[in-house]
C-alpha cells in the first residue's frame, strides 16, 4: 500500500474510534456542564451498555436474528435500560452529595465506578465474552482502502445520535432548561424549572449515549469485557477536555480529533500501538498546560 492508502485507512479507523470517543465524551461533558461532577462511572456505564445490549441480543436473536435489526433493537433497549440506571445512580449516590465537599462526591463517583465494573467482573468471572453478530464483511472499496458497511453504519449512527442531541439541546424547551441550569441552578429554581427532573434527564441522555457507544463497540470489536470502560472513560475525558469541557459540540469535535490523532499517531515511527495510551494521555497533559479550556470551551470568568 502506498503512503496515501495508509493515511486513508487510518482516517477511516480514526473516524470510527473517534465516534466512540465522541459519544462517551458527550455524557461526560453534559453531566459536568450541568452539575460540575466528573462522573467517573461514565466509562463503566459504557461497559454496562455493551453487556446489557449483549443480553438483549441473546434473547432477541432467536426471534429477529443477530443482524442489523437485532442489533438496532437491542441497542435501543440497552440505551433505555442503562439510561435509567444512570438516573438511578444519580438519585442514590450523587443527589445526596451535591452539597458535600467536592472531594466526597468525587470519591462517591469513584466508588460507583468500582461497584459497576467489579459487579460485572463477578458475574463474568473476569472472562471476555464473544459478542457474535451477523453483520457480514461486505463493503466498498475506495482505491486500495476497504471500508465495510458495518463501519459506515457505525459512523452514520454516531453522527445521527449526535445530530439528534444537538437539535434536542438547542431546539427544545428541555434543552434550553439544561443550558440554563448549567449557568445558574438557583435562578432556574426560582423561574419554576424542575431542576431535579432536568438533571435526571441529562443523566439519562448522557448515559444512554455511552451505552449506545458500548454496544456499537461490542458489535464492532466482537468481544466485551468488564474492564473495557476504564480506558475509554479516560480517553473520553481527554476528548471532552480537548473540545472544552461543558461544550457539547466540543465533545464531538474532541472525540473525533482524539480518534484521528491516535490512529495517525500510532503510525509515527517509535510510537507503536503499545504506546497509544501514553500518547493520548501525553496530549491531555500538554493540553492542560497550554490550553486547559480546550478548543471550544469558554474561558471561565475569573472566580469570586
Amino acid at each position: 500500500m502506498s503512503i496515501q492508502d495508509i493515511l486513508l485507512q487510518q482516517l477511516a479507523n480514526g473516524l470510527i474510534l473517534g465516534s466512540f470517543y465522541a459519544l462517551v465524551a458527550l455524557g461526560y461533558t453534559m453531566v459536568y456542564g450541568i452539575i460540575k461532577l466528573l462522573n467517573f462511572a461514565h466509562g463503566d456505564l459504557y461497559m454496562i451498555g455493551a453487556f446489557i445490549g449483549f443480553l438483549f441480543l441473546s434473547v432477541l436473536s432467536p426471534l429477529i436474528g443477530d443482524s442489523w435489526v437485532g442489533i438496532l433493537c437491542s441497542m435501543v433497549l440497552s440505551m433505555i435500560a442503562v439510561g435509567l440506571l444512570g438516573v438511578l445512580i444519580q438519585r442514590i449516590a450523587y443527589q445526596p452529595m451535591l452539597s458535600a465537599p467536592r472531594l466526597s462526591i468525587l470519591i462517591t463517583a469513584l466508588a460507583v465506578s468500582m461497584i459497576l465494573s467489579n459487579a460485572v467482573m463477578a458475574f463474568t468471572d473476569g472472562e471476555y465474552l464473544a459478542f457474535s453478530t451477523d453483520l457480514g464483511y461486505e463493503g466498498l472499496e475506495f482505491g486500495n482502502v476497504f471500508v465495510t458497511y458495518t463501519q459506515m453504519v457505525l459512523v452514520g449512527a454516531a453522527a445521527l445520535l449526535m445530530t439528534g442531541l444537538y437539535l434536542f439541546v438547542h431546539r427544545t424547551m428541555y434543552g434550553k432548561a439544561m443550558r440554563a441550569i448549567a449557568i445558574d441552578q438557583d435562578a432556574c429554581r426560582l423561574m419554576g424549572i424542575h431542576v431535579n427532573r432536568i438533571i435526571a434527564l441529562t443523566f439519562f441522555i448522557g448515559t444512554s449515549l455511552a451505552a449506545s457507544a458500548g454496544i456499537m463497540a461490542g458489535a464492532y470489536y466482537g468481544s466485551i469485557h468488564f474492564f473495557m470502560g476504564f480506558v475509554i472513560g479516560l480517553k473520553a475525558f481527554t476528548a471532552a477536555v480537548i473540545g472544552g469541557i461543558g461544550s457539547i459540540p466540543g465533545a464531538m469535535l474532541g472525540g473525533l480529533l482524539l480518534g484521528l490523532l491516535e490512529s495517525f499517531g500510532t503510525q509515527i515511527p517509535f510510537i507503536g500501538t503499545e504506546w497509544k495510551d501514553v500518547f493520548s494521555f501525553g496530549i491531555l497533559i500538554l493540553l492542560l498546560v497550554f490550553k486547559p479550556t480546550g478548543i471550544l470551551g469558554r474561558t471561565e470568568i475569573e472566580r469570586m
Partner: peptide
C-alpha cells in the same frame, strides 16, 4: 505543576492517566 492550577477534578483524572502511563512504560 500544570494540573494543580486547575480545578481539583482535573487532577483526579490526570493522576489516573499518569498511573496508567507509568504502568505502561
Amino acid at each position: 505543576g500544570p494540573t494543580l492550577r486547575l480545578r481539583s477534578d482535573y487532577l483526579a483524572i490526570v493522576t489516573l492517566g499518569f498511573g496508567e502511563i507509568v504502568r505502561i512504560i
